[in-house]
């Protein structure tokens, strides 16, 4: 009887210690699956900050500044080639990341889009976007948006910048 009591007490004690050790180690190893985004947070922030820096609605002599989002969009023609000052500014701000730039707008009943800088992203790419409002009067005469009746005035453009590490 005494021996049985001893054995039972020993088993209870070891079970208790086992539960404590298990609880301690199991709890501290919980990692949320969303935390895979942590490594991309900096790159995502860079994308947002880049678009914020390049967003400038101020005009000089009645025209948008070439290196801004507004300047780039207002000078687009049917080839959707951005001006070199904008590309230079974008290169400098996003260095050393590689990037892809897309433009979206509402046309008729749907959304149309095009790649302004058509590089292929890697699977680890992250993106940021910014909305810009431009009146049709501020667009160049050969702009594909100016005389299109399917596009409202003013035009809201979504500029999407996708970044990845080279």
């Amino acid at each position: 009887m005494k021996a049985q009591a001893f054995t039972l007490e020993g088993v209870m004690a070891s079970l208790l210690l086992l539960i404590v050790v298990y609880t301690f180690f199991q709890s501290s190893l919980v990692i949320s699956p969303m935390w895979s985004e942590l490594s991309d947070a900096q790159l995502r922030l860079l994308a947002q900050d880049t678009l914020k820096i390049l967003d400038n609605p101020d005009k000089v002599d009645g025209n948008y500044i070439n290196a801004t989002l507004q300047g780039m969009i207002s000078q687009l023609n049917s080839s959707f080639e951005p001006n070199p000052e904008f590309l230079y500014a974008l290169d400098r701000v996003t260095f050393p990341a590689d990037y892809r730039l897309e433009l979206y707008w509402v046309e008729g009943g749907g959304i149309n889009g095009t790649a302004i800088v058509d590089n292929d992203p890697t699977p680890e790419a992250v993106g940021g976007s910014r909305f810009v409002v431009i009146e049709k009067d501020d667009l160049s005469s050969d702009s594909p948006f100016k005389n299109n009746p399917e596009i409202s005035d003013p035009v809201v453009f979504e500029v999407r910048l996708i970044l990845w590490r080279p």
Partner: peptide, 19 residues
């Protein structure tokens, strides 16, 4: 055994709080 039960309970409570 009783004291080890008390200590184990305290350790379990602290580890849950930490987690």
């Amino acid at each position: 055994i009783i004291f080890s039960l008390i200590v184990a309970t305290i350790l379990a409570a602290l580890s849950v709080l930490h987690a």
